[in-house]
Computed example of a mutant assay.
Amino acid sequence: MRSPLDRLRHAIAFELIALVIAIPLGALAFHQPLGDMGVVGVGSAVIAMLWNMVFNYGFDLMLRRVRGTTEKTPRWRVLHAVTFEVGMLLILMPFIAWYLQISLWQAFVMDLAFSVFYMCYALVFNWGYDRLFPLPEWQEAQPR
């Protein structure tokens, strides 16, 4: 499994790259001031970073118990991304509605759009991260 420092590096890199992409796109797509989307983006990133570390640790424990390894097949990667984003949707919707002074429905639609973006982004980012920083246990599991 990944160390706490590796999980922290993963979470910070994930959120910083996502913010650079998501804040301008969100401001443009939802006709919100860039500054307001920046606050929502940074606030969401802090919440997401904490959720990321907790969720990924729990997911890895479950994966190791179910499969005997933390290596993810494409199917497990999709399940990982979807379940992570469902949790984020439930956590962030009230925050977005409150800060932007919009209805829960508008916040839901906005959050859902960000969730779709983040699911796709998470799939690509995590796959790349695992290739860039593979775990030794994965090398041992490879057939020779």
Rank of each mutant, 00 (worst) to 15 (best):
G58V: 08
W98A: 12
Q106K: 14
D111E: 14
N52H: 14
I91F: 10
T83W: 15
P74R: 02
H10E: 01
T73S: 15
V124H: 12
Y121D: 00
G38H: 05
F125C: 06
G58F: 14
V78S: 10
P94W: 13
A97R: 08
V39T: 11
D60Q: 12
R64M: 11
G68R: 07
I23N: 03
P136T: 05
L135P: 04
I47D: 08
N52R: 11
H31L: 06
G68Y: 00
F55N: 09
D6V: 07
I102R: 15
P136D: 11
P134D: 00
F117N: 11
R7V: 07
T73W: 05
E71T: 04
R2S: 09
G43C: 10
V86S: 01
D130N: 04
S115E: 11
Y129W: 12
E71A: 02
L90Q: 04
L50I: 12
L123Y: 15
L19Q: 07
W76H: 14
A45N: 07
Y129V: 04
M49V: 09
V66E: 12
L79W: 06
G87H: 07
F117R: 09
I23M: 07
G35R: 04
T69A: 07
A122W: 01
L63A: 13
V78K: 05
F133Q: 04
P74Q: 00
E15D: 06
G35E: 06
A107R: 10
E15T: 04
R67N: 13
V40Y: 08
L5H: 05
L16D: 04
L25P: 02
L25E: 00
A113V: 14
E15L: 03
L100H: 11
G38E: 03
V40R: 02
S115D: 10
L61N: 14
